[in-house]
């Protein structure tokens, strides 16, 4: 079976934390244990037009992300992909994900 990946179009991630909490609910992870965690990154560049500040959020899949194997067996998409309020997460084979990725200004691909 071809390897699966989680594609995150992080230019669109608004930092709502839905992925993180959906993952915790799905895996019953306690406080402190994350399958995916949202990080805030703020950078300043005075040369940037309109606003010198840039805010990015990036959901970081941890070692406890199993791409929701149990949900996949039931034919459901991963909890984070479903809950994502920005619709910036996608799941599929690596080949499918790299095709989607070509059109995204800033994206990261996670696989396991």
């Amino acid at each position: 079976m071809s390897r699966k990946g989680l594609l995150i179009d992080y230019d669109q991630c608004s930092g709502c934390h839905s992925c993180a909490v959906a993952c915790k609910q799905e895996h019953k992870y306690p406080e402190g244990k994350w399958g995916i965690k949202v990080e805030e990154k703020v950078f300043v560049d005075p040369k940037r037009p309109n606003s010198s500040v840039r805010i990015d959020y990036i959901p970081f899949p941890t070692e406890y992300c199993d791409l929701c194997a149990a949900r996949a067996k039931r034919g459901e998409r991963p909890a984070c992909v479903k809950a994502c309020q920005s619709w910036c997460m996608y799941q599929g084979t690596l080949a499918e994900m790299t095709v989607l990725m070509e059109k995204m200004p800033r994206a990261v691909l996670y696989s396991r």
Binding site: S18, A22, K82, A83, C84
Partner: peptide, 18 residues
């Protein structure tokens, strides 16, 4: 979790619901 066939959120859900 979110309900796919509801027009307002279409399966999405906030952290508080989750």
């Amino acid at each position: 979790e979110g309900m796919d066939d509801h027009p307002w959120y279409q399966g999405r859900a906030c952290a508080r619901v989750l």
